[in-house]
Computed example of a mutant assay.
Amino acid sequence: MALLEVERLQVTFRKHTLFGGRRVVRAVNDVSLHIAPGETLGLVGESGSGKSTTGRAILKLVPIESGTVRIEGQDIASVRGKALRTIRSQMQMVFQDPYSSLDPSSTIGASISEPLRVHRAMTRAQMRERVEELLELVGLRPSHADRYPYEFSGGQRQRVVIARALALNPRLIVCDEAVSALDVSTQNQVINLLEDIREKLSLSYLFIAHDLAVVRHISHRVAVMYLGHIVESGPTQRLYQSPAHPYTQALLSAIPVPNPRKRDQARRMVLQGSIPDPSNPPSGCPFHTRCPYAMDVCGQSMPQMTPIDGGGEVACHLQTSGPTLGGRCLDELTPPARQTEVLETTTARPDAVIKCVSTQPA
């Protein structure tokens, strides 16, 4: 049984414009995903794709328009008041900026003990003992409980935020860009800490990030999001080695190559343009305006999820129409040597395609 089940989740924001108009933005559109106990699901995509809104909707920090969000079989979309508070004790969030998510006027001991005061009937001594236990769990000293957030480095503050998220022994933690504000060495330390805690406490993570190299290291499965839609999901190894959606292929090609000897052999696919306006999304497949493989059907109808060889699903007409891939890797359709030929034969506009850039010297 899945710990978290999200089915057809939709989140819409309605804003009034300056001249009396109304702008409707569907930030999350028909998103379905699941996370098993002890599993980490990575959620990736460009800025504005709806990743953070999805994470906040799962914790019901933003209103859910439709769909279901079940934690251990209990739907939280319709519950309120004390029932919602009880369920929320099983789900916590780690935000991107640890300094802004901590009260600068309170000691970190007070910040970590706040969930205990709200949800648990504990004495002051019991709360102090629990705070010291949590600080040791995340690699800090118990004496740090009396210090203020400004006295810590960015990595230490993020450890404090993780300790606060663990206070109530939750089953699921949503990590929203939890390491993106840290330097590389500190990122590695925090990622290793999260993995150790997951194994020790049997936690599950929804790990939202831009850095696909970090996501590959920590995630069991990965979901790729574009303009409010999940366009591909599957086991990490399969998705990174055999991407089945053009958008996934482009994101993976942007990962820096650490080996200088192999860097000259790398081929990069650069996405032209930016994500369309979510208040006026394109018809059909949301990615077709930037896709080099776009066909007529791509602008007419939204592709349905199709099973992929090796596990997972993809929403792409290339798997069901035209040059049918039938769940195989996208590279089987367009080997790198034929990339230019494929671009010339597609129906995508010249100003909205993925360009294949060779890093080899001319």
Rank of each mutant, 00 (worst) to 15 (best):
E341D: 15
L116W: 05
N169I: 03
V31D: 05
A77W: 02
L203R: 00
D103E: 12
L201F: 14
E151P: 07
G228I: 01
V131E: 03
H220M: 10
A2V: 09
F95P: 00
Q319I: 04
H217N: 10
D176K: 01
A165T: 03
V257L: 07
T345R: 12
L84H: 02
M295W: 14
I275G: 01
C285F: 02
H16F: 03
D296M: 14
S113F: 06
P37D: 11
E199Q: 15
T324I: 08
T346A: 15
Y99R: 04
R147L: 06
Q265A: 12
N280K: 11
Y247R: 07
R328V: 03
M91V: 09
V222I: 15
L18V: 11
Q241S: 10
A57Q: 02
V24C: 05
I64V: 12
H34M: 03
G311W: 11
K200S: 14
N188V: 10
I64T: 01
Q187W: 08
R216W: 02
G326C: 07
S113N: 13
F13W: 03
I112G: 00
M305G: 08
I218D: 02
R85W: 02
S204Q: 08
I71D: 00
V44T: 10
V138Y: 06
I308V: 13
Q126S: 09
S253G: 09
R22S: 14
Y226G: 09
Q272K: 13
Q96A: 02
R221M: 13
D277V: 13
P115H: 07
I208V: 14
L61K: 10
S180H: 07
V353A: 09
P292S: 15
E132M: 04
G139E: 06
A181F: 08
Q304W: 05
L193C: 03
V161H: 01
T306A: 08
H229W: 09
S321D: 15
P170V: 00
P104E: 12
L182Y: 01
P235Y: 00
S47T: 15
I112R: 00
T345I: 05
L41H: 06
Q249A: 14
S49L: 05
L18H: 07
G311K: 04
P104D: 08
M269I: 15
G42S: 13
T236R: 00
I112M: 00
I112E: 01
H210S: 03
C175L: 13
L84N: 06
Q300S: 13
R14G: 07
R349L: 08
S301I: 11
D176A: 02
M91I: 13
R124T: 14
S113P: 01
G327L: 08
D146W: 07
